[in-house]
Design a protein around this nucleic acid. Sequence first.
DNA 1: GTCTATAAACTGATAGAC
DNA 2: GTCTATCAGTTTATAGAC
Lengths: 185, 185
Amino acid sequence: MYDSNPMREAILDAAEKRIRLVGYNAFSFRDLAEDVGIRSASIHYHFPQKVDLGVHLVIRYTERFRLQLERFDRNDLMGSLDQFFKLYSDALIVGEQVCLCAVLAAETMSLPPTLRDKVKDFFNLNLNWLNDLNAQHNLSKTAPRPIEVLTCLEGAMTIANAMGDKKLLTNVIADYKKRYRALIN
Amino acid sequence: MYDSNPMREAILDAAEKRIRLVGYNAFSFRDLAEDVGIRSASIHYHFPQKVDLGVHLVIRYTERFRLQLERFDRNDLMGSLDQFFKLYSDALIVGEQVCLCAVLAAETMSLPPTLRDKVKDFFNLNLNWLNDLNAQHNLSKTAPRPIEVLTCLEGAMTIANAMGDKKLLTNVIADYKKRYRALIN
DNA sequence: GTCTATAAACTGATAGAC
DNA sequence: GTCTATCAGTTTATAGAC
């Protein structure tokens, strides 16, 4: 990772947990200070402003996601889709957290524009990956649209979390797998 | 409407706009006071606590939505689906706002539990309506799952708004109409 | 790098006059 | 119902010691 300062990473970890739990506008530097065991003023040494923290966090989140995607074998359609869906289901079911960018997207107009742009980058990464996968397997005209897959996954995470029923996400993912599988049989 | 006090309604209107724009945690009683032309202390006369305002707002939102749904002719599958989808597309494309409950769902864990429950009610209203529609037309096993339709609409609104591209929602809706239409031909 | 101390602004909320 | 005045607590952020 290009960012190896341990305290800086710990602050980002704490901020990620907080934002994914309550959103960007409902956590404070004092919250993070308690989480990592230093004073709130010291957080400003690592991230002068709250927006700096937010921007670096979304960049780290997106790059980690990109790294996962690059590991998938795109020649294996169902295999890489399984792994893609698993990123989403694990986030909610194992990690017990909604996607960072799903939360931030809902707060878009309250975010500094530089942060807003980084959230867009995450969605574009997802859309491009799904689009390339469809194209590679000649499914661009028959497979579910990338935008539909993405919005359904993000929406299902958010609503499953709000309803307190994680199976809602599992069910949605199962149906998408069926639809894709039907295309290759 | 069972709530006919004009100032109370004006406050709810202002709060709805604000929340749908920036979320529950990014607007203040002073913001609303400016919007409606009274002082922030006077808002507390109508809604003693912020949570009271939030709860009444989501109840009003849900009941208005229910009223719309009841007007649809459920015997006409494609007609009532068109109208259902139009509620969502108009909200974003005409009203230029994301669904109130999509925003609140993303902030769930930062909301008072009573407010959280009202958000669930809105989603259940949607799920029940879609479920009944499928059942009435004997499409329960073939039509898109209600949870998939709901999460995709809410997710598409949120992401279309965050991406600054409202066509993303339009495209998703067009595909669902196609999938439903394919079932009855 | 982390600390104490503090600033300036904002938050939800209350008391009491009119 | 709306006002003024105000509270106690919180927020992001800075200055300067260690």
